[in-house]
Amino acid sequence: MRNQQLGMSSLNLILVLAVAGFFLMCAFKLVPVYSENQYIVSALESLRDKDKPVSQMSPSEIKHHLSNFYMINGVRSVGSSNIEIERERNRNIITINYEVRVPLIYNISVVVDFQNYMDTSKPEECCRPPVDYRPKTKS
């Protein structure tokens, strides 16, 4: 039988603290990016709560509403240039696709890609694109 207590060595403690510090650093840098995307989703959802139905709004009215929402809530990574509105016969498709680069360590960055989508004919199904949706490519 051993009479002395076994515990973590100094090297193991440093390793555990380094790993925990790395994950905390990642969390501190990535959580604000995801919370900002939640504001963008809230902006899209706020379109359906307007007095005027979204399907009857013009693209400029939609962009103006979203830009005001961004300004009030301090959304900085997305501007009105990322708002794309495709007009079809009886609906508008609003897409806000963007990516954010977060510098992590030295020359290593994390790229986070967001795709937000709203079909004005089905505003209750906001804000992720359906599986079969393919945005029109710019040529």
Rank of each mutant, 00 (worst) to 15 (best):
E61T: 03
E99Y: 04
D113N: 11
R48L: 09
I85L: 07
P53T: 02
S77V: 10
P129D: 06
P53F: 03
N116A: 07
N68H: 13
V110Y: 02
V112G: 02
P103W: 01
P103I: 05
N68R: 11
I96N: 00
C126R: 02
V54N: 00
E84Y: 01
D49W: 12
M57L: 08
I62C: 02
Y106W: 13
P59H: 11
S60L: 10
N97P: 03
N92M: 11
I105Q: 02
S58H: 04
K63M: 07
K122N: 12
D132G: 09
Q56T: 00
S80P: 09
R89S: 10
Q115P: 04
S46I: 08
S55F: 01
K52F: 05
N92I: 10
R48D: 09
T120F: 02
D51R: 09
K122C: 08
S109M: 06
R89G: 02
M71L: 15
D132A: 14
N68P: 01
S109Y: 09
I94E: 04
V54Y: 00
N92S: 12
Y106C: 09
H65N: 12
S58K: 10
M118V: 07
Q56E: 05
I93W: 04
S121K: 07
S55A: 01
I94S: 03
E125M: 12
R87A: 10
E84V: 10
S58G: 07
F114A: 02
N92G: 06
I72S: 10
N107G: 05
I62E: 03
S121R: 03
P129S: 06
D119N: 10
I96H: 01
S77C: 07
I72M: 14
S121P: 00
R91D: 08
L47F: 07
P53Q: 01
P123Y: 06
V102T: 14
D49K: 09
V112R: 00
I85P: 00
N92K: 12
M71T: 14
I62L: 09
Q56V: 00
S80M: 12
V102H: 00
D119K: 00
P130C: 06
G79Q: 07
D49Q: 12
M118S: 03
M71E: 15
F69T: 01
I108Q: 07
P129M: 05
K63L: 06
Q115E: 13
V111Q: 03
H65Y: 14
I72L: 15
K63E: 12
N97L: 07
H65P: 03
C126V: 08
V111P: 00
M57D: 04
